[in-house]
Amino acid sequence: MSFVEEVAATHGGENICACIQCGICTGSCPTAGEMEYPPRKIIALIRAGMRGEVLSSSSMWHCLSCYMCTLRCPRDVRPAELAHALKSLASRYNYRIKGTRAPAIYHSFVSSMINNGRVHELGMILRYYLTTNPLVALKIFPVGLKLLLRRRMPLRPHKTSGRRSLARMVKKFREIRGSH
């Protein structure tokens, strides 16, 4: 399967072949300036078969899921959902992403939710800063403190009993997909 077919088979990649490269997605994107490959270009690269360049890129990790691109696209390409699909592919094939710490916070988020059933922000953020750059945490400390003082950053996670059944389901799901 070619890379373009691989992407077109995902939810979010369905219409990439319909793209006419008009650039309205990139023009609309609030973070295009931060991206090495903004949405229009990433579609061009997918269609050029440049798998490694695309999946190791930090570009889609800058997507804010504001869906402005998706709203305006004249060809019904859904670039925001495409970004999710590309991140998911990059994660599945363990690409190392340079130039953004977004993957680290995503991993912290998911492990916090799996461990507790619900996300525990303080735990998630601490884990994130420990795995990336603990010094940055100092800059943000005043914000955290204000939240803490206003009961918006509980110290201990709210462990829901649902976490056990969630973990069992995820395990089972991985078995099912592994066997397919």
Binding site: C22, G23, I24, C25, G27
Partner: peptide, 27 residues
């Protein structure tokens, strides 16, 4: 070459003041 994303009158720089600002990707 680029289909404009939007036209706005919300200026972000002094040159944009009182103008129509076209935001787009120069593809």
């Amino acid at each position: 070459r680029g289909l404009p994303a939007e036209i706005t009158d919300i200026a972000e720089t002094p040159e944009e003041k009182d103008k129509l600002i076209v935001q787009f990707e120069d593809t």
